[in-house]
Design a protein around this nucleic acid. Structure first.
Length: 541
DNA sequence: GTAGGGTTAG
């Protein structure tokens, strides 16, 4: 048996780079009888809980199995690990467990547990924690207080965040991070003007503060120009500044601008980061410009950048949207790690390229060896079935979603199901489906059935639904056109013309608000036009 | 004896 000395173990703990190395070392620790060594256990825990190569469930198991009492440091490590995981509630559980066991929190505990309650649903606990901070005399710790501000900000409680910020200012515990946190809070709550006022008031700014303000402006198409202005005028830029701007363009639908800025970033010799790459790939996908996407892919290969899940998913989306489904498949197959979005995107690519059956087959594989499907998986699958006319398969997917996976259908799922049934000519079934829906159907669902009635020649049903739909949405031009098309298909030219006239007279092609601009029309006038419908037209409807 | 923040991603 290998007898390890304490010091060599400690050394090896800082050296391993993979989880299997660590597990091997852990088993050596167990066989060497060193499990009672608090320091070694702590080092292991920290690696497992915090390192990107870590393994949180394994950390939890180790935590639960230590022989001695847990130290404050161990609790802090677990709280920190879970605060940046997908189960932040576990941080709160560890905090409560710590308090139950009589361990007192310190200035390292609070920042992470505040992060864990940065969602509207946990603001109540956040408030309790805030009063604990006061009780433990930590209001002079700027790290703790900035996290209080951050917690209130991301929970949408801007007035609380502002109050804490001002109180901090009163006792001299705010710094550039406090300002930036508050600027971000206002920008994310849609109060970008307030964010800008604060930004202008800042006693000093650094590159992160500038990036935060740019991100606030870049969120929205109306203000992206301001974002670019700040970007051009800032004293220094880092990779995040560029990727903030690029993702802003991509998010606002300005895909060419996103791509051009990425090219500019590379041209000036900067190394793009993960998020710049992901945003640019997504812009190429939206542009449906295969050449740009291929250029980006070869650039990534040349630079020997690692293609992680997000980037890989972006590439397969791009190839799928640009019509190169074979390349999308090879990217998908080569991805070492795939998440639910990667699978969804690949299924969508197949479905939208007309490979409905292959999409279903990939879903079968996903059920066996992939992550659990989510609501998006089913949207993608159902629309694939609808696209390829796979009626029976669509029904069974829908049943699997609600039965096996207990996913509650949303309006998207309902819409696709109606489309699927109506396209297949099952008009009565589609109608039945809409009438039995537990939520109020969107008028568009009836519209889909009316359209299908025309294609399948069910004039009677189409006419009845078409009239109802006009009553439901008298200002929607498409509703008049659907009815008119149905009547024309039945060669009832006079009726069809009457509906078209009605539509013209009601001026429904323009919304009342818009028609008043530049035409001299008044709202009353529009109303009058609407009322001037002839008796025959009224009777027809 | 060990530690920490605010910006960017599908």
């Amino acid at each position: 048996m290998t007898q390890l000395r304490n010091s060599s173990l400690t050394q090896s703990l800082t050296l391993f780079t993979t989880i299997s190395d660590l597990k091997q070392t852990h088993s050596q620790i167990i066989t060497s009888g060193l499990t009672n060594n608090i320091f070694i256990t702590t080092r292991l825990l920290a690696f497992l809980a915090i390192s990107p190569l870590g393994d949180l469930p394994y950390a939890k198991t180790l935590f639960d199995n230590v022989k001695h009492d847990h130290t404050l440091f161990m609790y802090n490590t677990m709280i920190r690990g879970f605060s940046q995981s997908d189960q932040p509630l576990c941080s709160i559980e560890f905090y409560l467990r710590m308090r139950r066991n009589g361990v007192l929190p310190d200035n390292y505990t609070f920042p992470f547990v505040f992060k864990a309650c940065s969602s509207e649903t946990h603001v109540g606990f956040g408030r309790q924690l805030h009063s604990s901070v006061v009780k433990f005399g930590l209001v002079y710790d700027v790290f703790v207080m900035n996290n209080v501000i951050g917690m209130y900000s991301s929970c949408g409680c801007l007035s609380d965040a502002k109050r804490v910020f001002e109180e901090g200012g009163g006792i001299g515990v705010i710094d550039v991070v406090s300002w930036t946190t508050l600027v971000t809070g206002y920008a994310n709550s849609g109060e970008v003007e307030v964010a800008r006022e604060l930004f202008d008031e800042m006693p000093c700014r650094n590159v992160v503060s500038w990036n935060a303000m740019i991100a606030g402006y870049a969120r929205c198409y109306n203000t992206i120009g301001e974002a670019r202005e700040l970007f051009e005028g800032m004293p220094e830029r880092n990779a995040a500044s560029w990727s903030t701007m690029i993702s802003g363009y991509s998010h606002c639908g300005m895909y060419n601008e996103a791509f051009d800025l990425f090219v500019e970033m590379v041209r000036v010799g900067l190394v793009p980061n993960e998020s710049a790459l992901v945003s640019t790939v997504s812009a190429c996908a939206q542009l449906r410009e295969l050449e740009k996407g291929v250029w980006l892919h070869s650039y990534v290969d040349e630079q020997k950048f690692e293609i992680n899940v997000a980037l890989g998913t972006g590439f397969l989306d791009m190839y799928g949207k640009c019509g190169n489904i074979g390349k999308a498949l090879s990217v998908f197959n080569e991805m070492p790690v795939k998440n639910v979005m990667s699978w969804n995107q690949m299924i969508a690519g197949l479905a939208l390229s007309g490979f409905g059956r292959q999409a279903l087959a990939l879903f079968g594989k996903m059920q066996m060896m992939g992550p659990p499907p989510n609501n998006v998986t089913f949207i993608v699958l159902l629309s694939g079935c609808s696209h390829s006319g796979l009626l029976k398969e669509g029904w069974s997917i829908y049943e699997k979603m609600t039965g096996t996976y207990h996913i509650k259908p949303q309006s998207e799922h309902y819409g696709i199901m109606v489309d699927l049934l109506a396209r297949a000519g099952l008009l009565k079934e589609a109608l039945d489906f809409v009438e039995k829906m537990p939520v109020k159907p969107h008028p568009g669902l009836w519209g889909a059935i009316v359209g299908a009635c025309r294609i399948h020649g069910d004039i009677e049903l189409g006419e009845r639904l078409g009239k109802q739909l006009i009553e439901l949405e008298p200002h929607h031009s498409g509703r008049y056109l659907s009815l008119s098309n149905i009547l024309a298909a039945a060669e009832r030219w006079d009726d069809a013309a009457m509906v078209r006239n009605l539509f013209k007279e009601r001026k429904v092609s323009k919304t009342p608000g818009n028609s008043m601009v530049g035409t001299g029309d008044t709202g009353d006038n529009w109303q009058l036009t609407s009322d001037s419908t002839t008796r025959a037209e009224h009777e027809y409807l």
